[in-house]
Amino acid sequence: MTKGRIQTFLKRNWAYFALVPFVLFTLFPFAWMAMTSIETDEELYDMSGNAFILEKGATSSHYLFLLTKTLFKTWFANSLIVSSVVVLITILISIPAAYSLARIKFPGASTIGTGIFLTYLIPPTLLFIPLYTVVTFLRTANSLLSLIVTYPTFTIPFSTWLLIGFFSNLPRELEEAAMIDGASWLQSLVKIVLPLSIPGVITSVIFCFTASWGHLIYALAFVSRSSQQTLPVALISKLIRGDVFFWGALMAAGLLASVPVVIIYAFLLDYYVAGLTKGAMKF
């Protein structure tokens, strides 16, 4: 290669090189998790050898332990159920609310909007004690339902606020035209506004799903029955016993716990970027 060609090559591809440190920084912990998850216990604690090489070979025992000796599959399903139902509830409730707040200037609209926004700012560490009273009143304690009831407290404010941004950003002319053609206000929401806001809705879905998937505090305080627990809490309760850490299984679980969300992201990411472009940018 001549010097000139090297220069052109670098010029064209500099971004890939610049990205290397970021990718390393991002992925290293995951690589380390993957490695620990297939490492034998004996080697895990042996600090004398090369830390990057599995001298004693790989083992699938941690994955097997996780999948056969624990309720991992149940916890996974629980997390999936809770996150999905919470997303569904959130979307069903926040779409009409956001649309009303964005489109109709009725008295109190801005106060309600501000109120919704403020609730998003309250850290859940503060709320779990009084919330448990509500959970008990609803007789949902120690079950998935308690999480399905409480998680919307942090998903709905975010989702509503995000969607207000989206809806108010759409040109009114489209809906007005539809209404003149005899469509009702609600029909114009369903037939005109929603299709145009799919990116926004998907953005909201992704945020709410991630937040529910990883949420710890309510799950920690409200559900102690193993068969009803979600992944993060169950893993911490069952794989950390006092000062004994089941490192291999914990790491295996960490990888398995991020897989489904990553898959969803892989499919939705194009919408996600488009969604943010329309919503957040023009809030």
């Binding site: 009273t133 008990t136 102690s224 029955r225 309760s237």
Partner: peptide, 25 residues
């Protein structure tokens, strides 16, 4: 009889929530 086995962090949060609401195990 049902037994719920929990981690120490979970025990602390659960005890508090239960005692304050007068419910639970």
């Amino acid at each position: 009889v049902t037994i719920d086995w929990v981690g120490t962090e979970e025990q602390a949060a659960t005890l508090l929530a239960e005692a304050e609401s007068g419910s639970g195990h």
